[in-house]
Design a protein around this nucleic acid. Structure first.
Lengths: 357, 357
DNA sequence: ATGAAAGCGCTAACAC
DNA sequence: GTGTTAGCGCTTTCAT
């Protein structure tokens, strides 16, 4: 197994040229004659030579690799983000080191240290916690470009995400438009920036209508959702809709309502967020929100690669509401989509710059 | 941002010792006096020195990193495996490069090349396809230890997985024990080794009982499952159970039965496989199989690290059946678990060696 | 258009 | 116990 790996020198010997020429030829330098280039490439192929990334990295001081730090890949929201980031990175020859923080700030700190030690050229991070993660990513950003993605922890660092306020507002507008008047909200831990924004959107929306803000915060689990439902129902008898911060909570709400013999959506409508597989498989299927992860990830990776030197703003993409039977009932069309904004592109704020490089 | 990174030399200068001493001290070499060691560490800390992985890798010819190649991380089965592998790798200081094959053999090949170019010390791979992936992993295995995990494509390379035959047999035994007599099976593409093994287990089980082998193969999606259900039902009128190769297919089966007005489990029982979130959220919850992923991943990573020099056998861990309402009905206890084997440890075969190093 | 030589940051081998 | 030297594989001046 420990078969000696051919080096650039070996190729040079076989092709009868110098190592420098091999290096240039393999990278199609215009300085090298076509004839020499092809001879070198033939030699390389016959030796099954593969350029050694470590040597190149040491010399060129660039590893062509990206660190991705996610809160917890077992959260069904993140695999799609991971995939999108990897695809984007690979599209220009970068590799991705994945670091899972396991929902622990300590692990997140450790992950950053490992990635910096590995000399990743940039880091894309979805920070665990709005405030606790701030010193962690700030320190890392002094060494390497750090782009916040999906969640954020610092307004002083670039961020690419989704317009949570617009999305949650659209959910609430949809509930109102379909006749709901007593809307409760179950939020997730507001340490997550997205959860904080969604809750803020609910409070603002309800406040603007002079409605009671009947809400609570629960763990992002089905059990959490069930408990939250019990609480908001206990607080107000005539709730006719429960908007949730994410699909897991919403599914838990469904199970509580089911256990109580409350019909969905006839008596109470329920909404989720994230369009995870759960929202399609549960009963009834959940009205939820689709986030344009491929675009968000692509933009974040592009910024990471460019070093995002003077881009300090927040780039927000619009989400899409998908209405399913948990709000529109069995008689309505199976699924229709409402884009939350006319323009498909992102918006920026806080930087004074328009989007586009 | 491009703040100059302190080097080992800088630390040496500050501490008034040689670079070699710094190198040794930072790694707690017993050769260095305690006094010097602490002085060096102080200097390192004050400079915020972080050892450069690239230099170390070039010199020591080991990157302390592991490549993980998965078929598609959006398959809800894999995030747990990815997490388990990363945790195991990190437990002895390795990092993980994740490469997602996007269900394409070409991408899988490309992934292997990239990982080898990055000089990962070992690769853990869940091969996309039983036969098409074979040349790919075989070639990689000539350069670096390659451990197959979950799925396999070559019996000539180490494999750590789950006893699929035992698991599927237990599912069928369970159906029989709860009174089912006409069991159909919906398999996934048998290019996946696990799907092939599960189908083989069904055919063997049914054959041993002289039962009709009413089965079909369908895409691993909910749509595939719905279509498969239509086919097996058309073929035989008195099916009273449908065992499925995975949860996604089983959920599709549920939706088809639901649409046909067929009651689950009263008229037809349904089983899934993998214990993904789908199996808990769908209606009714699916009887399914839990695979001990943490153990499988831990063992695979340990073998990868050791280079698994003469371990060519298959290491199989037993799975656990979890019975839910899709087979045992609403009156039965909510969920009870049946371990599929007495011994919690893995079994080996094909190598003549017993487990344990 | 090509070669020679230096050096990226680190650690192993060999002094002392 | 510690310093000196050399070199991992590559790219990049600087020559020619």
């Amino acid at each position: 197994m420990p078969k000696p790996r051919p080096t650039l020198r070996d190729v040079a010997l076989l092709a009868g040229v110098s190592p420098a020429t091999v290096s240039r030829a393999l990278r199609d330098s215009p300085l090298i004659s076509a004839e020499t280039t092809s001879r070198v490439k033939t030699a390389a192929t016959s030796l099954r030579y593969r350029s050694d990334h470590i040597g190149r990295a040491l010399r060129s001081q660039t590893t062509l690799s990206l660190g991705l730090v996610v809160p917890n890949i077992n959260n069904p929201f993140f695999p799609a983000l991971v995939q999108a980031v990897e695809v984007a990175a690979k599209s220009f020859g970068w590799s991705m080191l994945l670091a899972d923080s396991l929902d622990s700030v300590d692990v997140e700190q450790e992950n950053m240290d490992v990635l910096l030690g590995r000399r990743v050229d940039a880091i894309v991070v979805s920070p665990l916690h709005r405030t606790k993660s701030r010193p962690i990513i700030t320190a890392a950003a002094e060494v390497v470009p750090v782009i916040q993605c999906d969640r954020y922890a610092s307004r002083a660092l670039p961020y690419v995400g989704v317009d949570q306020d617009g999305a949650m507002t659209a959910v609430l507008d949809h509930l109102e438009a379909t006749g709901r008047r007593h809307i409760a909200y179950i939020g997730a831990d507001t340490g997550e920036s997205t959860a904080a924004e969604r809750l803020a959107a609910f409070r603002e929306w309800a406040g603007a209508r002079d409605l009671a803000t009947n809400y609570c915060v629960a763990p992002s689990t089905r059990e959490g959702g069930a408990g939250g439902a019990a609480r908001v129902l206990a607080r107000c008898g005539d709730v006719d809709a429960i908007a949730c911060c994410n699909d897991a909570i919403a599914v838990g709400v469904l199970s509580h309502l089911h256990a109580q013999g409350i019909a969905v959506p006839d008596q109470i409508a329920v909404t989720g967020f994230d369009n995870t597989v759960m929202s399609m498989v549960c009963h009834p299927p959940l009205t939820t929100v689709i986030q344009p992860l491929d675009e968000v990830a692509g933009r974040a990776v592009a910024m990471a690669k460019e070093g995002a030197p003077d881009e300090r703003g927040r780039i927000l993409y619009p989400a899409t509401l998908v209405a399913r039977q948990s709000t529109v009932g069995p008689g309505a069309p199976a699924a229709w989509r409402t884009p939350l904004a006319q323009a498909p592109g992102p918006s920026t704020d806080g930087s004074g710059r328009r989007d586009g490089h």
